[in-house]
């Protein structure tokens, strides 16, 4: 096997190749839908999915539920992000604290947060509070870990300059730390937002009567497959879109 062999489709161009792949996938989907190999409507035709998507985007109910989910995620990101940032800065600034407590963050970070949902229901009830709490719990860890790592990467000269001017802790945080660690913070927020979306939506699918997660599980319960596919498409586009937007924002901020 040769390293990076010249591709046989170079002339076709990447855009054309992408288009070809998309067309092949869509044709395969349509063929599978028409084949009858799977139960009826498990793989609905693209026309049905398109119609369901149009209907979904035209309904006021969808936007109401989108607003609920977006509100829960925003509050979760605000609380979890702020708490994560504060803990990350404290751990990154103090070697002793880092050695004492950072392993807890690193170990708890990769645990599946949805298992805490029964506890969150007991603490915050079955309403939006428990969903926000799930989002907070999910996004706290990536933001804190990223902020702690970012703190350790700050140029020591900047810190010494701040200290030589006898800056207070608050001034050090707002004038030096936050400016010097923009990129790690934005990366942490990006990761945190991704997991906050997942945590909140999963909680909505488990126990809720509002939000996009609730709509998905309702579509499943009613076996309205075209609507479920439409919702999944919308969720994926929104999640990936927000992720890309924050990434671009980070690059924009970083270049200023």
């Amino acid at each position: 096997m040769s390293a990076a062999a010249p591709l046989p489709v170079a002339a076709l161009g990447i855009a054309r190749l992408r288009l070809a792949i998309v067309l092949v996938v869509l044709a395969a989907w349509e063929a599978l839908s028409a084949s009858g190999l799977l139960f009826r409507d498990v793989i609905p035709s693209l026309l049905k999915i398109g119609a369901a998507l149009g209907k979904l985007l035209a309904s006021a109910d969808f936007y109401g539920n989108l607003g609920v989910t977006a509100g829960e995620i925003s509050v979760a990101l605000l609380i979890g992000g702020t708490a994560g940032l504060a803990v990350g800065i404290a751990l990154g600034a103090n070697r002793f604290l880092s050695q004492a407590f950072e392993s807890l963050l690193l170990y708890l970070g990769p645990t599946p947060k949805i298992i805490f949902f029964p506890v969150m229901i007991m603490w915050f009830g079955v309403g939006p509070g428990s969903k926000v709490a799930m989002g907070v719990l999910s996004c706290f860890f990536p933001v804190a870990i990223s902020a702690a790592a970012g703190m350790r990467q700050i140029d020591r000269v900047l810190i010494r300059v701040g200290r030589s001017f006898r800056a207070t802790t608050w001034q050090m945080v707002t004038k030096i730390y936050l400016h010097a660690m923009r990129e790690p913070i934005i990366n942490g927020v990006r990761l945190g937002l991704g997991v906050a979306i997942v945590g909140t939506l999963l909680a909505e699918t488990k126990l809720s009567n509002r939000g996009l997660g609730y709509l998905v599980i309702q579509a499943y319960a009613l076996f309205d497959m075209p609507k479920m596919y439409a919702l999944v498409i919308v969720l994926f586009v929104l999640s990936i879109g927000v992720n890309v937007a924050i990434g671009r924002l980070g690059r924009g901020v970083g270049t200023k």
């Binding site: 991704g194 979306i197 997942v198 939506l201 999963l202 699918t205 997660g213 998905v216 599980i217 579509a219 499943y220 479920m228 999944v232 969720l235 994926f236 999640s239 990936i240 992720n243």
Partner: peptide, 9 residues
């Protein structure tokens, strides 16, 4: 970056 787990239904 996609929330794959949401595909569980």
């Amino acid at each position: 970056a996609a929330p794959i787990v949401l595909l569980y239904p």
